[in-house]
């Protein structure tokens, strides 16, 4: 599995030669630095830790600064691990760029969705609303939340209003339409979770099979 960290830059569209337009998201990905290696002996699992986007020394915490100094780079703003089946052949300090991906490859994109605050059931779960008029006093209320004497409680997991968004979301099996190695850009078909300039992880699709 290949992982790269990046920032979502926004959406645009690409024209194929036959004139079909495809919506795509531009992600500025990498170059990422390998910050640490997790090994079977030492950590009980194998992984590489990647760092993306330099941060000023003043901003980084002391442990982060120390770790970065060992690697010989600036401290990074965004660190994530790429879990591997066996020990990696990568070395600490190695760079991962968009060249690790191929055009047409399927990827999963992980990001943090836009936070929508405390939202009602209509926005959060897509409940239907009541009638607007004719004496209705049930415009955006959730309605019944269960039975009465039995069970005398509300079942766990009942969908209700509450905090919505700002959650880790994975969008699976998106196609890479274009790669710009000069500017470290990935053009990914369709939408990707999160706001513009939000951090995203792009990795090889876990389940998807590429259409031939």
């Amino acid at each position: 599995m290949t992982l790269i960290l990046g920032r979502k830059k926004g959406m645009t569209q690409l024209f194929a030669e036959d004139g079909t337009a495809t919506g795509c998201t531009v992600v500025e990905a990498g170059p990422c630095t390998v910050m640490q290696l997790r090994t079977q002996e030492k950590n009980g699992y194998s992984a590489v830790q990647l760092g993306f986007e330099d941060v000023r020394d003043k901003v980084a915490s002391k442990p982060r600064r120390g770790q970065a100094a060992q690697v010989g780079t600036a401290p990074k703003r965004f660190l994530r691990e790429d879990r591997l089946a066996g020990d990696s052949d990568l070395e600490v300090g190695a760079a991962i760029t968009v060249e690790a991906f191929d055009c047409g490859q399927l990827v999963d994109v992980i990001g943090t969705s836009r936070g929508r605050g405390f939202s009602g059931t209509i926005r959060r779960h897509g409940f239907a609303r009541g009638p607007k008029t004719h004496g209705s006093r049930n415009y955006r209320k959730p309605g019944s939340i269960g039975c009465s004497a039995y069970p005398s409680r509300v079942f766990k997991g009942k969908r209700s209003s509450g905090h919505f968004g700002a959650k880790r979301i994975t969008t699976k099996n998106l196609e890479i339409l274009r790669i710009d190695t000069g500017r470290n850009l990935l053009f990914i078909k369709g939408a990707v979770p999160g706001p513009r300039n939000g951090f995203v992880q792009v990795q090889t699709a876990k389940t998807g099979v590429q259409k031939v």
């Binding site: 830059k9 926004g10 959406m11 645009t12 690409l14 024209f15 531009v26 500025e28 850009l185």
Partner: peptide
């Protein structure tokens, strides 16, 4: 210039 604007200009 905004990155997306630049890309759109090129494409």
């Amino acid at each position: 210039m905004d990155l997306i604007d630049g890309i759109e200009k090129e494409l």
